[in-house]
Amino acid sequence: MKNFFRILFLISLLIGFQYNSNAAEKVEYLKTDWSFKGLFGKFDRAALQRGYQVYTEVCSSCHSMKYLSYRNLAEKGGPEFSEEQAKAIAASFEVKDGPNADGDMFTRPGKLSDKFVMPYENKKAAQAANGGAYPPDMSVLVKARGGGVDYIYSLLQGYEDPPPGVTLDDGVYYNKYMYGNKIKMANQLSDGLVEYSDGTNATVEQMSKDVTTFLMWAAEPHLESRHQMGFKAIVYLIILTILVYFSMKKIWSRIKTEV
């Protein structure tokens, strides 16, 4: 039995290494309580809906979210807008479709099955409109950054005046948490920028938290069912392990030796 503690120790060593390797250039990120962390972590439904509002009113003018469809907004484990709400959201976007019977492209109101409409035709157009910097697609952004949600949350609040001695080119901004501190995205959030329909006070901190929660869901839409299934699976395995342990003891008791 105690050998297994040794194995666990080895595993924790290995994870420690990985942690270190990821944290090579770590800065202390801002901390906040994420409802989706932990064994039973779930998304805060209201935060997801507010986060969607921030995304769609602020971020989506530059950042695409190409792997999400409007139907996802009504799916279980997500913001859980009602189907009518999701349909209305979809219909508020113009979607390019076609070719029709005459061979022409046309625009129509969005449907649930449509992917999120992209802000730019293509990557080159996005770069041209943003001083050469490509605003990354946000579908898996949280998983594509070493610090994850904490990094995004901090970055949104990390704009500062550059310290003396740091000169910034036109269209470049100083951010405490950005790798190399220079970022081509200007500070986007200011208090009261959006008007939350649920009456929540739209502070920069609140909006950062909401939109980051939304991005986490966008990157891991099945996080809630993963946590639920994980708990069941592990409890099941533990019970089975205990039963097998006693069967093993029983079987080996026929032999004069230790197991």
Partner: peptide
């Protein structure tokens, strides 16, 4: 039975990674 017992212990660790920290061993 002994291999089975050890395998189950191993699967618990495995399941923990899969369900709770699925991306920790990969690179962002």
């Amino acid at each position: 039975i002994k291999d089975g017992f050890a395998l189950l212990m191993f699967m618990i660790v495995f399941a923990f990674f899969v369900f709770y920290t699925p991306n920790i061993l990969g690179h962002a």
